Simulated assay, not measured.
Amino acid sequence: MEKQTMGEEEINMHEEMRRAFALLSGKWKLEIMWLLNQRVYRFGELRKAIPGITQHMLTAQLRELEADGLVSRTIFAEVPPRVEYEITHKARGLGPTMEALTTWWNEYGKSVPVKPSARGRKARA
């Protein structure tokens, strides 16, 4: 499945898949997308839900996801301001992929060795 032809145009599927992988290849993007697939989150809720992520990194990853059209950000004109994040219609198309990963993990997850997490800040107790 290296190359496909669409009309006169030839598509290199390897390159196309590299582009697709790049959308979710940030350090925390899959975890963010997993959470947002469940429900709408406020920034602080996301930060608390992801042990080890820094405020700076969460902001950077959310901005990238928003720029790629996978996350939408809604600002409410309140005092103090409220900001909510949710996945877009385009990102909802990844739902079957997340369900497949869940099914795979339920079958094989126990056989995967637990590795100590050395990334980001330490989770607060």
Rank of each mutant, 00 (worst) to 15 (best):
K110L: 10
L24V: 15
K3M: 07
V114Y: 05
K115T: 03
M6K: 12
Q38Y: 06
V79E: 08
M13H: 09
L36S: 00
F21T: 04
L30R: 14
R82D: 05
E2V: 09
E31M: 08
H14P: 01
A125D: 02
L101Y: 04
T59C: 11
A49P: 11
M98Y: 14
P81Y: 03
R121E: 00
E31S: 12
L65Y: 09
A20R: 09
F21C: 01
K29W: 00
K27Q: 15
R19E: 07
R82S: 03
T74V: 11
R121G: 01
H89T: 12
A123C: 01
L35I: 07
L36W: 01
F43T: 06
A123S: 03
T74K: 13
M1N: 10
W28N: 10
K27R: 10
H89L: 09
Q61N: 12
K29E: 09
E86Y: 08
K27L: 10
E86P: 00
I53Q: 03
Q38M: 03
L30G: 08
T97A: 15
V114D: 04
D68G: 04
V40N: 00
T102I: 08
E2P: 02
T103K: 13
E16P: 01
G52W: 08
N12C: 05
T5G: 13
I32F: 03
Q38V: 06
M13T: 14
I11D: 04
Y85A: 01
H56K: 03
I87G: 02
F76D: 11
H14W: 10
R19L: 13
E2M: 05
Q38G: 02
V114N: 10
A22I: 02
N106H: 13
M13S: 09
K115G: 01
T59H: 12
I50C: 09
L23I: 12
G109L: 13
E86L: 10
A100F: 05
E84Y: 11
V40Q: 06
E15D: 11
R19S: 13
G93N: 13
L62A: 06
I50D: 09
L94E: 12
G109K: 10
W34T: 15
Q4V: 15
I32G: 02
M33H: 08
P96S: 14
G120K: 02
P113R: 11
K110G: 09
I32V: 05
A91E: 07
H14L: 13
N106W: 14
T5P: 00
T5K: 06
A91V: 12
R124T: 06
A67K: 13
W105K: 11
V71M: 09
N106Y: 09
N12D: 15
R124S: 04
E9C: 02
E78W: 11
E31P: 06
R119L: 13
L46P: 03
H14K: 14
E45A: 03
Y108E: 14
L65S: 09
K29N: 08
M17C: 11
L24P: 04
E84R: 13
K48G: 09
L58V: 02
R121T: 00
Y41R: 04
T59K: 15
I75D: 08
A100P: 00
G120A: 02
E66N: 10
M1P: 10
D68I: 11
W34P: 01
I11E: 00
E78R: 15
T88D: 08
M17G: 01
T88A: 07
V71T: 05
E8Y: 04
I32C: 03
A77V: 11
W104T: 07
